[in-house]
Computed example of a mutant assay.
Amino acid sequence: MKLMKRAFYFMPLAVLLMASCSSDEDSDIDEQKPTISLNSGFPQSCEELKRGETYTFRAAAADNLELASYSLNIHHNFDHHTHDDQGSSCELNAIKASENPMIFMENYSLEEGLTSYEINLVIEIPNDVDTGDYHCAYSVTDVTGWQARTSVDIKIVE
């Protein structure tokens, strides 16, 4: 009889614990990383950018829940390295040492609640940077920490 009384007192607690452990929590887990599209963006793979000119770098970012931030990274590829997220490759110039390469690395936060965003960054290619092979790498992060990246080969020319 004492055992039944104890069970009676602990039953509401057991029901409460079981209800709090429902599988609904699993549906709140974000299993999708954001996307970046350069389909109508700039630059496209193998694009030639002239020193001293100003360009608008564009890409479309989207996420199933919410975007948090994005970044743009332009760096030389004089050593012919590649990135795991890189699309098609372009014909490369000869390997060379850098003297004054263009390096652009900026991160940008996004306002809350956006599930899509059009990246538009106006960037001037300095007159005095080394010409040659470069990578243009976009990255986007969602609110849960998932990240997507894509990069294209570009050239800076006279």
Rank of each mutant, 00 (worst) to 15 (best):
M1A: 12
M1G: 13
L3Q: 08
L3G: 01
L3F: 15
K5C: 10
A7Y: 15
M11W: 15
P12V: 13
P12Q: 12
L13S: 11
A14W: 13
A14H: 07
V15K: 05
L16P: 05
S20D: 06
S20K: 03
C21S: 08
S22L: 13
S22Q: 12
S23G: 14
S23D: 14
D24H: 06
E25Q: 13
D26K: 13
D26I: 14
D26G: 08
D26M: 13
D26E: 14
E31A: 10
Q32R: 09
P34L: 12
I36C: 06
L38S: 01
G41N: 03
G41A: 03
G41H: 01
G41I: 03
Q44V: 03
Q44N: 04
C46V: 05
C46W: 03
E47C: 05
L49R: 11
L49P: 13
E53P: 00
T54E: 13
Y55T: 08
Y55K: 11
T56P: 12
F57W: 05
F57D: 00
A59T: 00
A59I: 01
A61F: 02
A62K: 05
A62L: 01
A62E: 08
A62Y: 02
E66A: 09
L67D: 01
S69H: 03
Y70D: 07
N73R: 13
N73G: 02
H76F: 15
N77E: 15
F78L: 06
F78K: 03
T82K: 11
H83I: 12
D84P: 02
Q86L: 08
Q86D: 07
G87E: 10
G87D: 10
G87W: 06
C90N: 02
C90Q: 04
E91F: 05
L92S: 06
L92A: 07
N93R: 07
E99A: 08
E99K: 11
N100L: 14
N100D: 15
P101K: 06
F104Q: 04
M105A: 09
E106G: 02
N107K: 13
E111R: 09
E112V: 02
E112K: 04
E112A: 08
G113S: 04
S116P: 03
L121Q: 09
L121N: 03
V122L: 15
V122Q: 15
E124S: 08
N127A: 12
N127D: 14
D128F: 11
D130Q: 02
D130Y: 01
D130A: 04
G132N: 01
G132S: 00
D133G: 02
Y134K: 05
Y134L: 06
C136Q: 00
A137F: 11
A137D: 10
Y138S: 00
S139Q: 11
V140C: 00
V140G: 00
T141C: 09
T141R: 09
T141G: 04
D142W: 00
V143Y: 02
T144P: 01
G145V: 05
W146D: 10
T150R: 00
S151P: 10
D153F: 00
I154H: 07
E158D: 13
